[in-house]
Design a protein around this nucleic acid. Structure first.
Lengths: 241, 241
DNA sequence: CGGGCCTTTGATAACATTCAAGCTTCGTGG
DNA sequence: CCACGAAGCTTGAATGTTATCAAAGGCCCG
């Protein structure tokens, strides 16, 4: 990773969604003292499965993936890390997953031991972290439904839906008009997330494009003309943000 | 559910694994004051998806399932609740999942509001609950690999492996000899957990039985003559307890 | 311009599902 | 006590969705 200029927390894009969301000015100042940034280029490993985690931190910009690999090479992504998501958990000194930068990524980091000490007397952070962990558990379970029961077509729609929901929660204006998604995932990364092959991913994306459910703007951008229409393709009714 | 006689915490089978695992005598006494038991018969719903959770609690005996249903009826189990597992999380007043007793079930319960108050000044409970939540997150992710990438045969072996590991952690003597599993799940429940149809589950179980990887003792009991052999069938190497 | 990487598309094959029938097991009532 | 029916399980045959194998088409960057 390469060094990067500091940023004031008050100006930070994830200020109100990340682990620091509930902090007041005083608490924020304490975090600001010890935080540091790290940057990774697309494709770089951020953490190797099983390695000791010397730091924890929030994803500020970019997209990262969490994945698991079987001995024979089969890969399954177990989490998609979007801005404001947190890497590392109290009491865990390592993750059993590879974490990889899917696009260029910036992390707002804390040394792990120091963060755990801070946690003890910053209940706002501890509480928010627990909440985020429970959200992750829900997300993992939602994805179990995708992997266990949905068709290839529904899986693609579900992926678009997940990212669109997150995007929409950042930028509330988007609900009515077209939603433009920057989805810097290769077909391979999508296939790893969706439990499919790249060929099937490609075919289903083309198909949804031909039918106008999504519009393709280059290989890595998609436009959703009608969120409800997309929702109808995911298999589950509730798509409302 | 039917009422049930009280049990002293000190004699409780899940005393050292459940949310109370780290409590000392004093703390245990506080929990003992407010706990109450509930029992459910096989097949009964414990919680309906979306309903308000008036209580939280630990599974003392039996097996329960957590599942999600799509509008068109497709079902995916998102968690298998074994003795010592906890139902309910701080800050969540409901679960988005149906929780169903797969066998007769006994729960050690606390009224939700009271439990959350207790939590504030019992860090041993809060800490253990966080740890258990993180374990559940790992379990959910392990299962994403099963659902996304494993064959039907590997899925069956993985299910047996998950239950065997839990069983073994209760009863450490079992590692060498045959492991007997009481698995009170119907083929339908298994298929919901494994993302398969009941026919496929049935075929694969028969096949593994014919090959001697597992032995069938009636419909709801299986014997594992060789844990390593079973492990080799799960697709992932690490099966060691 | 050439090479590498990613993506698309086509043909074929495999694995799991679906549809269908028969078999156990178990509880109930005659 | 046996007969019956319901529920759960097994097995077979046909079908279908997705994977696999193969080739060619874009796109970026040196």
């Amino acid at each position: 990773m390469t060094p990067r200029l500091d940023l004031r927390c008050a100006d930070c894009g994830i200020r109100h969604r990340a682990v620091c969301a509930r902090c007041d000015e005083t608490e924020l100042a304490r975090l600001e003292e010890v935080k540091f940034y790290r940057s990774y280029e697309a494709g770089q490993k951020i953490v190797w499965a099983g390695d000791d985690l010397s730091f924890v931190g929030s994803l500020v910009a970019g997209i990262a993936t969490m994945s698991q690999t079987l001995e024979d090479g089969r890969v399954q992504m177990v989490g998609l890390l979007l801005p404001s998501d947190f890497i590392g958990r109290p009491g865990r000194t390592s993750t059993p997953y590879d974490i990889t930068a899917a696009s260029d990524v910036t992390l707002c980091c804390f040394r792990r031991a120091r963060f755990e000490r801070l946690l003890a007397d910053m209940p706002h952070v501890a509480g928010r972290l627990l909440e985020m962990t429970l959200d992750e558990l829900d997300a993992a379970r939602e994805w179990m439904m995708v992997l266990g029961r949905k068709t290839a077509r529904e899986r693609i729609a579900s992926l678009a839906g997940v990212v669109a929901r997150r995007e929409a929660s950042f930028d509330l204006a988007t609900r009515t008009r077209d939603i433009r998604l920057d989805l810097p995932l290769t077909r391979e990364a999508m296939s790893e997330y969706l439990g499919l092959t790249i060929e099937t991913v490609s075919r289903q994306i083309s198909q949804l494009g031909r039918e106008g459910v999504i519009e393709l703007d280059g290989k890595r951008k998609i436009v959703i003309p009608d969120l409800d229409r997309l929702g109808a393709e995911t298999g589950d009714e509730a798509m409302a943000g």
